[in-house]
Design a protein around this nucleic acid. Structure first.
Lengths: 217, 217
DNA sequence: CAGTGTGAATATCTTCACAGCA
DNA sequence: TGCTGTGAAGATATTCACACTG
């Protein structure tokens, strides 16, 4: 039975795969060697068939009657996601959030190496944060190419997000993760993801409001 | 025609409503008074009927043949989401990310007032950040009640996320936004949202990998 | 007559249920 | 026997298409 490697893979599947990796790493730390889709599902908060179906897009990794080898499954998923290599990234916008990312070890640990930090504020340019010198945003296109950056992280204020994006596009960037609270315009061949943490607060606020309204009935 | 106020509202609708608010605010800044679902859709990157359907869950806000009043629509959505009031929040975990949030003005601007900062590291306890004194995490339950916190923001390392959550649950918290790279266990009546920015990097990496693979065929 | 509001049609995602293998 | 892998069924979400209205 040929697996589905060449079907279109749902966006939701990708974000769940990231969760599986996370939980498999946790199990690895606890010394768990083998796990069933049932157990993994519980710890990820999803349905077991969902896991099996998600994995089926990439191949067959399980042992019938047994389950999955934790380490091997984790590696297989990472490979499927293109995480069996490192990626050079640039951070544009060195405010509170940008600084936090520059100092946060987790990006590097995951294979995302921050090779450039950019800002347009003359007071920040030249400053050293997390071992990197802040460079003027107008130098983004040339530096991006020079440093071989593939992914840009936008942490500017909303008003400057599109300008930052334009610089990155000029440099031929392939992907963007946007933390700025603004939609951005990019050609369709550029992969864009939004990290809207305010929206998650909105969502929690809404759900609390709603459940309280229900409680009154 | 009765609107759908009492139907179950899709999670996706809520997160789009947050986008609509964001874009409507941008239009307001630019002095735009009236907008059609068509125009709003373009700036939000969604389908126009999607917008009309999302809004229909909460009421009728448009003028046929005209469109929507930018200011009024924005206010109506915010009210529907429960954002016509302020919410007290606590930040648990004062690392790079926690500090960034404590200093980041955007939370307050959106009506989320950080009233407490907690950490279990004795070196951090007592430190003042963004006008708040860092308090020992073990005091979370009592302080949370005292400060009338409704939403907890977890910015601890993965290993300590569940413990932080347990403290918050003990205090009767209603909602949690979890930035830690770990799934957490909560009773069903607590609203939980995950902010997994690493997952968004994974997703971008995957999509770049995939489009390059396609390019080779 | 432009543009909303909405039922119907379509597309997508999730879960079930079970055949088949270790 | 126990658990995977997967077609079929079911549930949800999105888009279409158009009646209707200011």
């Amino acid at each position: 039975m040929p697996h589905r490697k060449y079907e279109r893979i749902p966006r939701a599947t990708i974000s769940r795969l990231a969760i599986y990796v996370q939980e498999l790493e946790g199990m690895e730390r606890q010394g768990v060697k083998v796990v069933s889709s049932e157990k993994l599902a519980v710890s990820c908060g999803v349905n077991p068939s969902q896991i099996r179906k998600d994995l089926a897009y990439f191949g067959e990794f399980g042992l019938r009657g047994v389950g999955y080898h934790v380490f091997e499954l984790k590696e297989a998923i990472k490979q499927s996601l293109g995480l069996d290599r490192t990626w050079n990234v640039a951070v544009v916008g060195v405010g509170n959030l940008g600084r936090a990312l520059l100092r946060h070890g987790v990006l590097r640990k995951r294979g995302f190496i921050i090779v450039g930090a950019f800002d347009c504020d003359p007071f920040k340019i030249g400053e050293e944060i997390g071992g990197l010198e802040v460079i003027c945003s107008s130098k983004l296109p040339e530096k991006t190419r020079e440093l071989n950056v593939e992914i840009g992280i936008i942490t500017t204020p909303a008003e400057r997000a599109q300008r930052a994006v334009n610089y990155l596009l000029e440099a031929g960037i392939k992907g963007i993760v946007n933390f700025a609270p603004a939609r951005i315009k990019t050609p369709p061949n550029v992969a864009v993801e939004y990290v809207d943490f305010i929206h998650h607060l909105f969502s929690v606020a809404f759900r609390i409001t709603q459940s309280q309204a229900k409680g009154l009935i």
